[in-house]
């Protein structure tokens, strides 16, 4: 992106000296980087480099052994996933994690759970504020459906949809939480070129229209280079590169990690 400077804001997320080990296996070693507001940051690296672990640390699924995370000015060592969610961090998963038997609409609606305030009973009886709330949430969900252009499958059970569309629905559910920081774990894995183009378009649109900050993991280098403002490269749990796509493309250490070193 050439107009990077125009849209970037202050730092929204800063990770410092994060280390994570499972028993003797060091998944992450002393990782530090920062994410600016409205930025699209890609995390890349070979298989097992610790990319998904990094995302899991950010949204509180894993608790790091050392280091700290500063999110919107609050420093903490660890947080729980629901805390992350309530503070505006949403994510999608490498393997689709949707409710297969439920409709697209209902699946996206689940993304609104944290925004629902009405009591259980009121919701069951569909009275008073619960009713207004439901209408408000449904409206938001419909806007997302419109945004992602999935009107025609609104009422289709997710299990009956092709893979590419399921990925889109998952993005929709993450968007339903109106996140400030969106974590996408391989949003384009297993897609064909057309589906990848669509998904890239939506990611850029989300970033542009809603100003959402996006951290994504992706293997397709073409997509990564086109989409991201900045790239962080991990290898064996260590950060070996951090910079704009052009910088990364010319980074010797990164080239070695991807292509192997000839002695």
């Amino acid at each position: 992106m050439n107009d990077t400077d125009r849209k970037l804001g202050p730092t929204i997320l800063q990770v410092e000296g994060i280390s994570l080990a499972f028993g003797g296996v060091k998944a992450l070693t002393n990782i530090s980087f920062e994410v600016k507001e409205h930025e699209i940051l890609a995390i890349i690296g070979p298989n097992g480099a610790g990319k998904s672990s990094m995302l899991n640390v950010i949204n509180g699924v894993y608790h790091p052994n050392a280091g700290s995370i500063t999110y919107k000015g609050n420093v903490r060592q660890q947080m729980k996933p629901h805390e992350a969610a309530s503070q505006g961090i949403a994510r999608t998963f490498q393997n689709i994690a949707l409710f297969k038997g439920m409709s697209v609409l209902d699946n996206i609606m689940t993304g609104r759970t944290l925004k629902m305030n009405a009591g259980f009973l009121a919701q069951c009886l569909y009275i008073g504020s619960a009713r207004n709330e439901e209408i408000e949430h449904r409206k938001k969900v419909e806007e997302i459906i419109d945004f992602l252009q999935i009107q025609s499958i609104r009422k289709t059970p997710v299990g009956r949809l092709p893979y590419g569309l399921q990925k889109r629905v998952e993005l929709g559910r993450a968007l339903a939480a109106e996140p400030e920081l969106l974590l996408l774990d391989e949003p384009m894995a297993g897609m064909n070129i057309e589906e990848k183009e669509d998904m890239s378009r939506f990611i850029l649109d989300v970033n542009d229209e809603f100003g959402t900050t996006i951290v994504l993991i992706e293997h397709d280098m073409g997509v990564v280079m086109d989409l991201s403002d900045r790239i962080v490269v991990l290898d064996y749990g260590k950060k070996i590169g951090d910079g704009t796509p052009t910088e990364i493309r010319n980074n010797k250490e990164v080239i070695d990690a991807y292509l192997g070193v000839s002695d």
């Binding site: 449904r138 409206k139 419909e142 806007e143 459906i145 419109d146 009107q151 609104r154």
Partner: peptide
């Protein structure tokens, strides 16, 4: 006179 479906309604 005219209807349009918008946001599902």
């Amino acid at each position: 006179a005219i209807r349009e479906k918008d946001l599902g309604i």
